[in-house]
């Protein structure tokens, strides 16, 4: 069951190295045309592996419930 949080990438800081995409166990992350990481919140389970590996520290967690309201 996915957590109530999901990962989101700050595209202004992302260096598009792809470390998060390699680490993601669900394959929820894609590097959009070499510019920045895009995370599919419908696939993301909020495990936090991408946040721990990101060298630029550009991944933050957002609350699904707050987003929906």
């Amino acid at each position: 069951m996915p957590s109530k949080f999901y990962a989101s990438c700050n595209k202004n800081i992302c260096v598009s190295c792809g470390a998060c995409a390699v680490e993601c166990p669900r394959g929820a992350i894609e590097i959009w045309k070499g510019c920045y990481a895009v995370i599919d919140k419908n696939i993301c389970v909020g495990c936090g592996l991408c946040k721990r590996i990101c060298p630029a520290n550009c991944i933050e967690f957002l609350n699904r419930e707050t987003e929906e309201n």
């Binding site: 260096v15 598009s16 190295c17 045309k33 070499g34 510019c35 590996i53 060298p55």
Partner: peptide, 27 residues
């Protein structure tokens, strides 16, 4: 000192190719 791929944050090739991609994709 930091995370495994910290080099990637300022890797010259990474910076250059990201800049090329951003210019090509109008970002």
């Amino acid at each position: 000192l930091y995370r495994p791929r910290t080099w990637c944050t300022f890797c010259p090739m990474g910076s250059m190719t990201q800049a090329i991609c951003k210019i090509k994709n109008h970002q």
